[in-house]
Amino acid sequence: MKGLSRDDIARRAAADLWDGAVVNLGIGLPTLVANFVPAGREIVYHSENGVLGVGPTPAEGKGDPDLINASKALITLMPGASIFHHTDSFLMIRGGHIDLALLGGMQVSFEGDLANWSTGDEKMPPAVGGAMDLAAGARGVHVLMEHTTKDGSPKIVERCTYPITAKKVVKRIYTNLAVIDVTPSGLVARELAPGVDFPDLQSKTGAKLDLANDWRPISV
């Protein structure tokens, strides 16, 4: 039961972006979302280092080293883009001016706690970047991640065992197996990947799931 490819997880998340949305894409899987926005929708991508209106990756050899994104990868600017300093950029993030942060996740709890910055391994020097600002400050936080770890352990859990990034912030989770909403009454599976049935999904999830009455297969 492998479910969706990484590209298809990103494609499914992209389908939810609305015309005019201001979106911050976290490093890793979320960066793929920019490749799959349905035609006809204008999305403004924000990069924490001071850019609104991030465009596609430049052609090989065409980038400018002073024009990068949060992952330090070369970017281009869309017509209408703006550049501003860090304090303004994080004012946008922390003051609820970003509609949606699409973030990677190591663990998400049934209440929407997010862990995505540290494994808690004391031997590794820590790094946090903008993860906590985005998780606490964006108007909406959705997570894209594989449903389980490489060894099959659930990443959706009762309680995060990794150090958390923010409490009760995640509203929707896109995985290779399902689209799951975090609601006041618990986790609700809205969509299942082709070939995935609900008992399978529950067995790979570390917290209780409900299946929405109007659930449907993920269409990508």
Partner: peptide, 14 residues
């Protein structure tokens, strides 16, 4: 090392 969230780092200087 003092690890500070990026926006907090910037806002503390502001």
């Amino acid at each position: 090392l003092e690890l500070v969230p990026q926006g907090t780092l910037s806002e503390r200087m502001r």
